[in-house]
Amino acid sequence: MLRPIHRLTLAVSLFSLPAFGAEPPIQLGLVLRAGYSPAKQDNLNASLLGLGVSGDYALGSSLALRGELAYFYTPGRTYRADLQAPASGQTAPDPLRSADVRKNKLEGLVLRFSAIRALSSGWSIQGGLQAGNSRFTQEYVGNTINSSRSYQDTYNGVPTKSALSLSPFAGLQYDVDRDGALELNLVGLSYKAIDFRHTPGALLVSGDPAKPGSHLVYAGDHLEEQSRMRLAIEFSYRFRF
């Protein structure tokens, strides 16, 4: 029976790039990832998908460093946003004739760096940082009108916000066999969220509502930015090449 430390060494070194010559010290792999993030913040869905290409470099007998180029995607559900308070002097929107429908998503292309230390019987612990570009997208489509029809606002857009994000993660790895490993990580996903704000009945700043295709901008329209940290549980399987 191999000791854990030897198992890790086996995983990291014996199967390192077997296809491309004589046993290089780097073990390549493909990671498929699914996750769960229960927070309802930003109306992102609870699920998370991802994939990545990784390289492991053995440092001694029980420690390895890993670098990974990864893509992750957190879809959102369509939701109906609350209508804002009307502009001064205007009555509130008629809820039966007004709606503001939105959908958010978060995706990113990141580099993940981690250290892995072998425990026992194929188990390892790992921890590291994920750094890269996260992109938050909000689709919004709104139509607000009050019962007296003193205003009727139509607005829509798909703004995005890219930001450099740094997210820590830590978890466990279990070597299913020499060809692959299961991983369970807890990751604090950082990103910048945006939220479009519109005041019903505000003054039209630009655009012509009578002209089709004209993009309408109202006084006070803006994007609110918030820095977020979202906790997610990741389940991964790593195919070792």
């Binding site: 809820p95 039966l96 429908v101 709104g142 139509n143 139509t154 509502p209 009578a210 089709p212 004209s214």
Partner: peptide, 25 residues
């Protein structure tokens, strides 16, 4: 969820029509 732009016959302005806005959600 989404409909399309349409003209509001009451005032001739272009508005975005969404399916069943009164019931959505």
């Amino acid at each position: 969820t989404y409909g399309s732009f349409t003209n509001d016959s009451s005032n001739g302005r272009t508005q975005l029509f969404m399916k069943n806005p009164a019931y959505w959600g």
